[in-house]
Design a protein around this nucleic acid. Structure first.
Lengths: 214, 214
DNA sequence: TGATAATTTGACCGGTTGGTAAAACATTAC
DNA sequence: GTAATGTTTTACCAACCGGTCAAATTATCA
């Protein structure tokens, strides 16, 4: 009766890897819709097709599952921002950042909603991440944007609010998906909405950041 | 032992009005942070300083409270969009819309989060409102924007995505408040952040919608 | 093959949840 | 003042919650 989660066992079984993945996938489904407090272990168990005790064999607590999901998500979520390159062409960098963020909203909407849920609740589980690594990363990229402004490559603006604007507009298509679909109606709610959004956002930000009279 | 909630009594007591208000206020506090599934009646009772059965004397169920909050919120939430005037100056109309939405994020952040929570969950309680009245209103205003474009008053763009962009950027300051504060840091996280945001957003949208070469 | 370790299950537990019943208490109208 | 009505409380319930336990089952490997 060895315990998979005990520190003793170093190597992970094939079954362990598979099941943990399945659990995380099912948990993401439920957590992203109902938040931490709003989801029950039974819901996750049902979503994965496992029994509750079996699920708790792989993750000691509900919170352990949630934390793992958040860790994972935060990492991939910040990837696009890290790619922001000071040496590159500002217009191209910003344009590709918008595009990548929009693709993430299209391809990983559940992760986006998980994050949004955590924010709405006041970030009780990742407050430290926000004040530490995230802030540091954003400060760094804000400097890059400021340098572009100083060099006369883009219009003068507040770099922090620019980043907020890109975040919010792109994530909106994942977090408020129901609303977007409802408003666009059946005819325009297909996958093409992401292309339309990309076109609009690129135009808006590009023009908004153009140097006047350039 | 008359029952306040019974259909019989037409007139509302002073006490009824006061208590109902208190309950809705406390409930908004909890629902907006934890969503419908995530909040308990006990939490609401504590937030209002009433006992649970007393609370259930005024609202039959948890859902009844939630629904009332949503109704109320939806109404005030759409007010700014209704004010959008086809006869007015496009630049001024859009500018003031941004400003009003931003003020709502500042003054009614809990309402914004309540709405966001409902959206994240897939709008199980107000799906009909979205597909009916909301869609209709947005369609109407999209026509107004299209007319401005046709008249050569603003740049060509997709009116729906323009509205989405205004919604998302402004509501971001309420829904992702923790993140905004964390990233801006202590020095800039004061109330002034809304002024900074307004300046940035107005500039971005105004330039983004300017007619090229005008 | 059999022993050993890994996995899965059913039964269970104390605490919480949404909600009820009835009686005690307060307010209002006459 | 008192009777009728409106409000609040105490005690309670069945279902659900996160999580444990020991036994049953399955996979691994010498």
């Amino acid at each position: 009766m060895a315990v998979a989660r005990a520190a003793k066992t170093q190597r992970r079984t094939r079954i362990q890897e598979e099941k943990e993945e399945r659990i995380l996938d099912g948990a993401l489904e439920v957590f992203s819709a109902s938040g931490f407090r709003g989801t029950t272990i039974d819901q996750i168990a049902e979503a994965t097709g496992m029994s509750k005790p079996n699920l708790l064999y792989y993750f000691r607590t509900k919170e352990a599952i949630y934390r793992r999901l958040l860790e994972r998500m935060l990492f991939t979520w910040l990837e696009p921002l890290k790619a922001f390159d000071a040496e590159g062409d500002p217009q191209a960098e910003i344009r590709s950042y918008i595009r990548r963020k929009l693709e993430m909203s299209r391809d990983y909407p559940r992760e986006s909603r998980l994050f949004a849920n955590e924010m709405l609740q006041g970030a009780p589980h990742i407050g430290d991440e926000l004040n530490g690594p995230l802030k540091q990363l954003v400060d760094e990229k804000a400097d890059v944007i400021r340098a572009w402004i100083k060099a006369g490559k883009i219009a003068r603006c507040d770099p922090y609010h620019l980043i907020f604007a890109i975040w919010s507009t792109t994530q909106h298509y994942a977090d408020f998906d129901v609303q977007v679909r409802a408003v666009l109606g059946e005819s325009r709610a297909g996958e093409g909405r992401f292309e339309d959004a990309a076109r609009f956002l690129e135009q808006m930000f590009m023009r908004g950041l153009e140097i006047k009279g350039a």
